[in-house]
Design a protein around this nucleic acid. Structure first.
Lengths: 217, 217
DNA sequence: GTCTATACAGTGATAGAC
DNA sequence: GTCTATCACTGTATAGAC
């Protein structure tokens, strides 16, 4: 797994053995219960070290929490890309993008991360920006790039690629994302596929050529 | 203000003076800081009563929190309706719906409520359902009713009014809602109006007659 | 019902030995 | 660096007087 190969982390704990174990334990505990419900005692026990060792690596609970969030934000949204998709076969490509996007934002780890950031952003105002840049903004940029290629290829009637990417992401995310944040969804893969399909259909009705023209007009 | 005229609350504290004051103080504090960051001491002081009095009205901090959330969920989404809007002038009516919807979900109180529920839903699993039914579900039903009327009037080419209402709400909510949850938006009224307008435009391109046909096809 | 005073558990953080 | 033991403090919750 090699959790320590990422130089982006700002707190830079000595990442041999214990440091990584503490970060991993903190990640697990914080993701499950949030900031307030988890004590340093619990984290120390989960990492099989003493509390003093935790404080040898992180100067405070706040810093440990921030390190967990920054690390996860960076980790979980890195793989999203649409660069190899064909802008001519726009229906298939948009469907692939929608599925990848949902798979990412509905994954238990991403939902838990999103949840604790939203819940603690009043106490840690900087975390909102960190998450936004690493997550939604990055994926929107990827989608926007595809929109530009499709517009250039003449397969999408788009004038504002940025807005189109936003709207596509919003349609795909739909209400299922909020339902996951609220712990209301049984996490059905079929529901995700349906949501992706109907979002793509509606988007193509608005911006596609040929397939999406109104039936009567 | 008469905060005690609502019989829906389940905990039923004696709502003369002190009970209402405690609930109001708890609402204010919880909305600002979440569950973990607020102590019963602070709530008692904010309500100008002793801690023992708080416990005379609410048996625990958890119950007080639940009462606040249930009360607010009920209170803040009651007014949303689209019943008087004209389904023939669909562009104007959808714009009005979009503005009302954004005004509601982006209001500081609604955002704060949404935030603390998402943050504490792991500790209070029931709150997610309470909020969903009182908020997103209720507004979606109102939008769906309008969609049915517009479909019947022939002004929208909709086959699944429920799905159309969901997608319209998702388009309107866009990314601005998540940005508010993450405390990233300076809360500009102009940004809301723009978001509403572009969401309506895209929705009409997909489901409207005449005005939304693709330019070249 | 409402207060003052307090019991008691648990918290974040640290001292000092090794 | 890592541990055990402990600090000072705050938290929720309650007893007892009025």
């Amino acid at each position: 797994m090699r959790a320590g190969s990422n130089p982006v982390m700002h707190s830079e704990p000595s990442r041999g053995g214990k440091g990584a174990a503490i970060l991993a334990a903190a990640r697990q505990e914080f993701l499950g219960g949030g900031f307030g419900a988890v004590s340093m005692d619990v984290i120390a026990r989960a990492a099989s070290v003493s509390k003093a060792t935790v404080y040898a690596h992180f100067t405070s609970k706040e810093e440990l929490f921030g390190a967990v969030v920054a690390d996860m934000s960076e980790r979980y949204f890195r793989g999203f890309s649409a660069s190899e998709l064909d802008p001519v076969d726009v229906a298939a490509s948009l469907t692939t993008i929608a599925r990848r996007f949902l798979e990412l934002v509905l994954s238990p780890e991403a939902v838990a991360l999103n949840r604790i950031i939203i819940g603690e952003v009043s106490r840690f105002p900087a975390l909102g920006e960190v998450f936004w840049q690493a997550g939604p903004e990055r994926s929107r940029v990827q989608i926007e790039i595809f929109m530009r290629r499709a517009a250039a290829a003449g397969t999408l009637a788009i004038t504002d690629p940025r807005e189109a990417a936003e709207q596509f992401a919003s349609l795909v995310r739909g209400e299922i994302h909020l339902r996951h944040l609220l712990r209301l969804e049984p996490v059905h893969a079929a529901a995700s596929a349906d949501a992706a399909a109907s979002a793509v259909a509606t988007f193509l009705r608005a911006f596609g050529h040929g397939t999406g023209a109104p039936a009567a007009g």
